[in-house]
Design a protein around this nucleic acid. Structure first.
Length: 288
DNA sequence: CTGAGTCAAGGAGTA
DNA sequence: TACTCCTTGACTCAG
């Protein structure tokens, strides 16, 4: 089992998610500044991870802030491609598996075609970043989004929107959510698109569709084929609404996951507010 | 100077 | 209809 965490490192005070206000996007100096800080953060985090034994990292979606917007002020692929290729080679040398996770605003299943096309742009931006990084085992994690009072139509639109997007599908994996789409629906859509499905342990507990966690793993893992499966591990914040991530992982949640995992060559993305600090107590289990 | 509020993005849920 | 939540760093503004 290998472990990782998303977006930033609190120990290093490093982030890959520096951004700017949309109003400042025309100020190229500010854009370059944010990107440079994100690339520096990424490089230092990857090095630190390998030294600590952590093997996964999710890049912040603002790596190139508003990189998917049509009025982005310059050709970021041209300008930062060489730097991304260099950092990507380093990531491979350090054996770090990279991922990205477009937010809840990315909805390929939306009935609104403008929402769909903005979503496609964000997914293409994410895939291009992973392409430049040479992340052959990279993953773009996405939720199915809304149901729009017609679940079947929403799933059909989602599938149709992405069916002819090989650049995106190469990386895309679909994750269950705590409210609308349990792992059963996610696996169904993933199979239709020929892509993998991700079980999130907290989301699954809240929205299980009558499946045990073990059932959910057994349903999702075959969608990965020869690729190494990924799952998400998180715990409920007791003071916040259902589904909110806590600062650390409850030992019980970790132990349940370990007990029912059908195989050990799994990558576990730990989603916790304390980021890399939430991984420490599990170090003894992080055996490659 | 600090802390509170707003902002980019879409949808679901509640009152 | 209008509000909140999901996330989080940037930025504004009141005090």
């Amino acid at each position: 089992m290998r472990l990782g965490y998303p977006c930033q490192n609190l120990t290093l005070s490093a982030s890959t998610n520096h951004s700017l206000r949309l109003k400042s996007l025309s100020n190229q100096d500010r854009v370059h500044d944010a990107i440079r800080r994100n690339l520096e953060g990424l490089e230092s985090i990857l090095k630190w991870n390998t030294n600590q034994g952590w093997r996964l990292f999710r890049i912040g979606q603002h790596l190139v802030p508003f990189g998917s917007y049509p009025d982005f002020p310059f050709d970021w692929v041209d300008y930062y491609g060489p730097a991304l290729e260099r950092i990507g080679r380093q990531a491979q040398y350090l054996r770090q598996r990279l991922s990205m996770h477009p937010g809840q605003f990315i909805n390929p299943g939306s009935p609104d075609k403008d929402v769909r096309s903005r979503g496609l742009a964000e997914l293409r931006y994410s895939a291009t970043a992973l392409d430049l990084l040479g992340a052959s085992d990279g993953v773009i994690v996405l939720h199915l989004g809304g149901a729009y009072d017609d679940r079947q139509a929403a799933k059909d639109r989602f599938t149709d929107c992405l069916a002819s997007e090989p650049q995106i599908l190469k990386y895309l994996a679909l994750e269950c959510d705590e409210r609308t789409w349990p792992i059963t629906d996610v696996v169904e859509v993933a199979n239709r698109l020929g892509i993998p499905a991700i079980v999130d342990t907290l989301h699954h507990r809240i929205n299980p569709d009558q499946l045990s966690l073990e059932d959910a793993f057994n349903l999702a893992f075959p969608t990965w084929g020869d690729r190494r499966p990924k799952i998400h591990l998180s715990s409920q914040d007791p003071d916040k609404m259902t589904g909110a991530h806590s600062a650390r992982i409850e030992p019980d949640d970790f132990e349940l996951m370990l007990r029912v995992l059908p195989r050990r060559d799994v990558d576990v993305m730990v989603e916790a507010k304390d980021k890399e600090l939430a991984l420490s107590f599990q170090k003894e289990a992080a055996v490659v």
